[in-house]
């Protein structure tokens, strides 16, 4: 933990060297996700609801998904940009240090400019909360915290998968965007609106519905109580990702690519 603190401080100091550029990328993050908001806003100027969800409920959902993603991206950025870490030989350096590789990769990049998106997400989130007439209790606040935790873990899991594939090939990895950027982009609406098949896929194969749709139903008082705990189950998704990572590292060590 102390080591991570050091990593964090170093990133903070680096950023301070380029304040303008940092502020601009924050602004960029804000604007890019602002388009997301505009899309929702104008759709709801025309339609009052979608598959039973109102404007404020969708904003709540969008805010939470965006927060989950931004958290993962800010802290697991090392995995997200792992291709360049491997191709620049930085991974060799990581291997000659007596610490866990995963931890070092986590520390190697911390993307604080994602704060631009976090701000946006928080604004949507707060608006969603205030306008959706949810009766807030302590357990619901805890459910939101679990969603953020589970969501960050699931998105990080996909970053880890991406990084593991980088050990084998860096060609054609663009398709992984489907699971990361795609999930962020389309996670703005509750998963159920995309139809039953997508919902099933996102429940049993990739656990997106567990960190978004089901706990959201709980928040809106239309779901079972145990829905609130599903994000914890989603965290299990990390296990196969880590296995894949181990396989990737073993491949790297035996092929030295």
């Amino acid at each position: 933990m102390k080591l991570y603190g050091k990593f964090f401080m170093i990133h903070l100091k680096s950023i301070m060297q380029y304040k303008t550029s940092f502020l601009l990328s924050c602004l960029g993050q804000f604007l890019v996700s602002f388009n997301l908001f505009l899309g929702i806003y104008f759709m709801f100027r025309r339609f009052s609801q979608v598959e039973g969800f109102t404007y404020s409920e969708v904003l709540l959902c969008c805010g939470i998904t965006l927060l989950e993603f931004s958290l993962a991206e800010a802290f697991a950025r090392g995995f997200d940009t792992f291709g360049s870490i491997v191709s620049r030989g930085e991974f060799d350096r990581i291997l000659v240090r007596p610490r866990n590789e995963i931890f070092q990769v986590l520390g190697s990049r911390i993307e604080l400019s994602r704060i631009g998106r976090v701000l946006q997400a928080i604004v949507m989130f707060i608006y969603g909360i205030r306008a959706s007439h949810i009766h807030w209790t302590l357990t619901k606040a805890a459910a939101v915290a679990l969603m953020l935790l589970g969501g960050a873990v699931v998105f990080s899991g996909f970053f880890v998968i991406y990084a593991s594939i980088c050990f084998f090939t860096i060609e054609g990895l663009e398709f992984m965007n489907i699971f990361t950027d795609g999930a962020r982009e389309y996670g703005k609406y509750p998963v159920s609106i995309y139809g039953k098949k997508v919902l099933q896929l996102c429940t049993f194969v990739i656990p997106y519905a567990l960190i978004q749709y089901y706990p959201l139903l709980y928040l809106l008082d239309t779901g079972e109580a145990y829905y609130a705990l599903l994000p914890l189950a989603a965290c299990l998704f990390m296990l196969p990702c880590l296995v894949l990572w181990k396989i990737g590292v073993r491949h790297y060590v035996s092929s030295g690519s």
Partner: peptide, 16 residues
Amino acid sequence: TQFFWGAMEILMFRAF
């Protein structure tokens, strides 16, 4: 990726 993107976009419009 783009095929996926298109499909999701269409599913979204279908919902509305």
